[in-house]
């Protein structure tokens, strides 16, 4: 087995479609961490995930999983990956018991006992066809399948979207349990940044196929802040400190990316901490200082 530091390593990934390009994406998911992969619809999250899984072929760039090239050692790699898609990729006519028989013939390290334990834990019926399952049940089934072949890396594409808060919370607990093993890692794309704030160690933002921001979640949250001031006072904020701005009923909110320094520099202004949601919004929807003035 290869010694590796990073579960996923992507270098200069490029992929072109009509009207969309993924441009020079670099991404690293260190072993033993959860990375939240955030972006709007069509930002390039699914394209990146499909490239990692070798479902689509990138035009340029290199992808390594567990230190191995994703195409050259594809089978070895895929035995160690669990994948959860946004929709159930299994046939509706199958029952969970039949699915167990099918997947046991696909994964060399399939663990039927573990699969049935998850089914019991998630209260999923064994003999019912998947067509009768709710969205939450389908997602639980996918997660049970992804975790039942001793995967070291879990790749999830919008796995928690469309689920109610109770089911989402249950799923997040399962992910945290999975992370108890220090060799396990997760790449989790999601719109729901509140989930990522709960579980992710690092965050990567993509927008229009380009990387906006990537780093440890705590670093990102502590570095960013929102300065709240009047329109007149906003002119006093140095352009190099500003990421973007937005107008509110009470004045102006300015997103800055060096909160500690800005707190000293603009000690007369109110400085609030921020959330991943707000950071994403400011990066994507906020106005630059040039546009504002």
């Amino acid at each position: 087995m290869y010694h590796y530091e990073n579960a996923i390593e992507i270098k200069n990934l490029c992929k072109n479609y009509d009207g969309f390009s993924l441009k020079n994406l670099n991404l690293t998911v260190p072993k033993g961490t959860i990375m939240g992969f955030v972006g709007q619809n069509g930002a390039g999250k699914t394209t990146t995930i499909k490239s990692i899984l070798n479902i689509i072929r990138p035009e340029q760039g290199e992808i390594y999983l567990f230190g191995m090239h994703h195409q050259k050692q594809e089978i070895q790699i895929k035995n160690r990956i669990g994948v959860v898609f946004d929709e159930l990729p299994f046939h509706d006519q199958l029952t969970p018991t039949q699915l167990n028989n099918v997947l046991a013939g696909i994964y060399s390290s399939w663990d039927s006992k573990c699969f049935f334990q998850y089914l019991e834990r998630f209260s999923l019926p064994l003999k019912k066809k998947m067509a009768t399952f709710s969205k939450g049940m389908k997602m639980k089934l996918q997660i049970a399948a992804a975790l039942s072949h001793n995967a070291e890396l879990l790749i999830m594409d919008e796995a928690t979207s469309g689920l109610d808060p109770v089911v989402r919370s249950e799923m997040l607990d399962v992910f945290l349990e999975f992370m108890q093993d220090e060799n396990h890692s997760i790449l989790m794309s999601s719109h729901i940044t509140s989930d990522l704030e709960k579980v992710a160690d690092s965050i990567t933002f993509v927008h229009n196929g380009t990387l906006l921001l990537s780093g440890y979640k705590d670093d990102i949250l502590s570095a960013h802040g929102i300065v709240k001031c009047s329109k007149e006072n906003a002119k006093k904020v140095a352009p190099e400190d500003i990421i973007s701005m937005r107008c509110t009923d009470f004045g102006v909110e300015i997103m800055v990316n060096d909160r500690k320094n800005c707190q000293k520099k603009y000690s007369n202004f109110v400085m609030d901490s921020t959330t991943l949601d707000e950071i994403l919004l400011f990066y994507v929807r906020g106005l630059s200082k040039k546009e504002w003035w």
Partner: peptide
Amino acid sequence: SCKWHLYTFSAPLN
């Protein structure tokens, strides 16, 4: 139609 092909491409199958 059920996107099983995506699953097989992400599974250890050549």
